[in-house]
């Protein structure tokens, strides 16, 4: 069942393309830096403008209030931002099971945000995003700062999430091995075009 659909989708200088994501599907996206991967994710969560049709289940992007769209189409930037003094203030209903699955404990919520390492920020940023109960996840290199143990934890959590919630993920990564491991369909951005590739 298709839950996320792009028809004649255009943004920035990328040529129009079609894309469909089925419930439970993960696709990987790669391309040289500056090719527009991050811009695609930003356009999909409507932080940047796009042309063409963008649909989540029955709802057209432009007919959905922007804040509701972004709660359902969750974008995780490569670098997450934190603005309150402690971690916990960024969470309204933190799932303690998931916190533990990523190697944290309840005490983490009391941590000073200035203490966080890049990897901790990345993992906590993902948990913060999942609170909104999104239908689609747009992940911009979500495991770049992680050691192999934590990388595995994140991949495991996301794979489980995708199956259980019947969501879908667009996962930007450069790591070929990871691409094969997490996704069944792969896309590359080459010369302003998005094309499916076989790995």
């Amino acid at each position: 069942m298709t839950i996320f659909q792009l028809r004649d989708f255009m943004y920035h200088n990328i040529l129009p393309f079609q894309l469909e994501l089925a419930a439970g599907q993960v696709i990987s996206l790669s391309g040289p830096s500056g090719s527009g991967k991050t811009m695609l994710l930003r356009a999909l969560c409507d932080l940047d403008p796009h042309l063409g049709e963008l649909r989540l289940e029955e709802d057209l992007c432009q007919d959905t209030p922007p804040h509701l769209w972004r709660r359902q189409v969750g974008f995780l930037a490569a670098e997450t931002s934190w603005w309150f003094p402690t971690v916990g203030e960024h969470f309204s209903n933190c799932d303690l099971t998931r916190l533990a699955e990523l190697g944290f404990s309840e005490a983490t919520l009391g941590w000073d945000i200035h203490r966080l390492s890049a990897g901790e920020k990345q993992r906590l940023g993902l948990l913060r995003l999942l609170q909104n109960q999104p239908r689609i996840l747009l992940l911009d290199e979500p495991t770049t700062n992680l050691d192999s143990v934590n990388q595995q934890r994140v991949e495991q959590l996301l794979t489980n999430w995708c199956q259980r919630e019947q969501g879908a993920i667009i996962w930007v990564t450069h790591d070929c091995v990871q691409r094969r491991r997490i996704a069944d369909v792969h896309f590359d951005i080459v010369d302003n075009q998005i094309q499916e590739v076989r790995l």
């Binding site: 969560c45 932080l47 922007p66 804040h67 509701l68 972004r70 709660r71 969750g74 974008f75 930037a77 997450t80 931002s81 603005w83 913060r128 995003l129 909104n132």
Partner: peptide
């Protein structure tokens, strides 16, 4: 922009 992305 992070806050917007989180649905603010």
């Amino acid at each position: 922009e992070t806050r917007l992305a989180l649905g603010a």
